[in-house]
Design a binder for these strands. Structure first.
Lengths: 337, 337
DNA sequence: ACGTCTTTGATGGTCGCAGACAAACTTATA
DNA sequence: TATAAGTTTGTCTGCGACCATCAAAGACGT
């Protein structure tokens, strides 16, 4: 099939060791020899087998990434950032969508272990015990989890401070004069959803605002979930003047639904989202939202990962990222109503 | 580090052969022995090294996917489908974003070759000669290109019939009574962009409609490109009653821009997109668009790939997929203007 | 008791590469 | 000239699994 190091050695009239050394620049080789080797490699279209190499050096320069679904734009953007970092660091990224299924997760975990990836990035946002125990089995494998639950000390975690983010959102609404505020969020078994709800309630209470029961809606984190959530909200006896929505995808669905019902945003209803996905600047109207620093999240994840690969068995770190407010046009000051 | 087949053999009191045989079910082994082996493997948390295995059996059960950027929702959805198929077939997917950069592309191509992936999926939509020649160098490696140009006979291609798609779009507009139709599309060095423009012009001519020069706008395929394209369109002396936009992402940007200028969609301007991404059902108003059968595209790509892996060096296939119209609410009948 | 089958287990070579160890060959120094 | 020191390259083993080949143990017939 493809040429081996032996073929190159033969053609260059040197030993395989020499070939290996010039290709890896791992020891001095005379200029002339070097050129002979390089030329032979070129002529044979030689591509060193990373699999053989990996077997020997015991690393694969590839990382697995477990993510619920890249269909969600937030995850898509994050994966994109992660991939960028991997590339920069010379790693390959093996993409594994779990679709939230335990079986798929386990199966991928097994595959990744067997493929001997150097580490696994986890972004499944549900803290599911069985998932957790699956992961425990691989304890020896470096692992960093992003936006996810269980605190343990052998794995690095890096999270968005969603409680803070929710505060930011509510504060902004309040500053704009809103008092009647609703919340449509993700499923509570996902940590970010829970934290955002907690933050919402906390912020409301701090401002001495009541949170009306039927204005707190739990949905999923998808477009359709936002649509359904809004439909539910619109069926309430009285309507809020503003709604904080758990992520931008839901905000999109929700806005679409509201506008279909003839509600003007932001004149009749202000909307604030969470995540600051690329496309939220292109909503009608452009979405005011809480920015999660995705690039930074990815960078930290990868650098933490690499650090742990190079220096295993250190204590697990926990890094918290701070979100910030991005003001666009989906929130109106209450006086304009 | 992690246990080897030897460790398992030792612990089970058998030879490595036996372990291999029970694990791979490749020959009959006494029940009792089998159980001892299984238990030993379990206790040691043994995961057979796929890298060692690959070295021997000469395949890696992983595929590389070269894609311009998964930031674009269409690509994201497609990658998602591809991943699903890979999983089903027992393959891993190595995600490679080229960002349209030749250097990154080449670098990834090299990595993938060295990692000995079993095949490469290409979705870069630009037919760039230098990219092309890079790929040629890997001719031995199974390759299927989706939505891309050069016809050659050693690579499988599978494309959306974008000319047809454009026809569908224009036909629909015409049926709704539109005659003054504009086009905002992607960069012409990308095949789909070119095909959609060709289809647009063709369809217009067939209907004896004039295509006004300043109503044909070339942009990029991104949100921002749509926004800019619409801005340019709005600066024209006269405005069209409808616009066909090269993909849904641009349609989103364009609609946002138009609505920001106070233009009502679809009452004052009808919009039709292309791709039928997940989120286009949640635009305000929901987007009428041309559906590209993404799931089918992915399935065909993977099945073609696997066929070629199992049966190499056959003639390259070319498969054409048919798009279809999805009517939602962004196109109004012209009488309602 | 011996040979023949059947069932099960052991051995060693192989895949492509890296690296420890060491050899060959050159130049400097006594 | 012999020896040390330095320069450049080569030999050989093993990473972890698979597999073809061989070998042992037991069952059975004659």
């Amino acid at each position: 099939m493809s040429a081996t190091i032996k073929d190159v050695a033969l053609r260059a009239g040197v030993s395989t060791t020499t070939v290996s050394h010039v290709l890896n620049k791992t020891r001095f080789v005379a200029k002339a020899t070097q050129e002979r080797v390089l030329q032979a490699a070129e002529e044979l279209n030689y591509a060193p087998s990373a699999v053989a190499r990996s077997l020997k050096v015991k690393n694969t320069k590839s990382l697995g990434m477990l993510v619920t679904t890249t269909l969600n734009p937030f995850f898509a953007e994050l994966v994109n950032e992660v991939e960028k970092c991997c590339y920069r660091e010379g790693y390959n990224l093996v993409l594994c969508n779990t679709d939230g299924e335990l079986e798929k997760t386990n199966s991928y975990l097994r595959m990744l272990t067997q493929k001997r990836v150097d580490g696994i990035l986890v972004m499944c946002s549900a803290y599911d015990d069985s998932l957790f125990s699956s992961l425990i089995g691989q304890r020896n494998l470096p692992m960093v989890v992003m936006d996810w639950g269980p605190s343990d000390d052998y794995v690095d975690r890096i999270q968005d401070n969603s409680v803070k983010g929710a505060h930011l959102a509510i504060q902004h609404l309040i500053e704009q004069g809103h008092k009647r505020i609703a919340y449509i969020g993700g499923p509570l078994e996902k940590l970010p959803a829970k934290q955002r709800l907690d933050g919402f309630i906390e912020a409301m209470e701090q401002a001495n605002l009541v949170v009306q029961d039927d204005w707190v809606i739990e949905s999923d984190f998808e477009f359709e979930g936002g649509k359904l959530g809004m439909r539910q909200l619109l069926s309430c006896a009285s309507l809020p003047s503003a709604v904080f929505i758990g992520n931008d995808a839901m905000a999109m669905g929700a806005m679409s639904e509201a506008q279909l019902s003839g509600i003007k945003i932001p004149q009749q209803l202000s909307v604030i989202g969470y995540d600051n996905c690329l496309y939220s600047a292109y909503f009608s109207p452009p979405l005011t939202t809480i920015n999660q620093p995705k690039e930074r999240l990815a960078e930290l994840a990868i650098s933490t990962m690499i650090e742990r690969i190079e220096n295993p068995r250190q204590e697990g770190k926990m890094i918290m990222l701070e979100p910030n407010l991005v003001v666009r046009s989906s929130v109106a000051a209450v006086s304009t109503i």
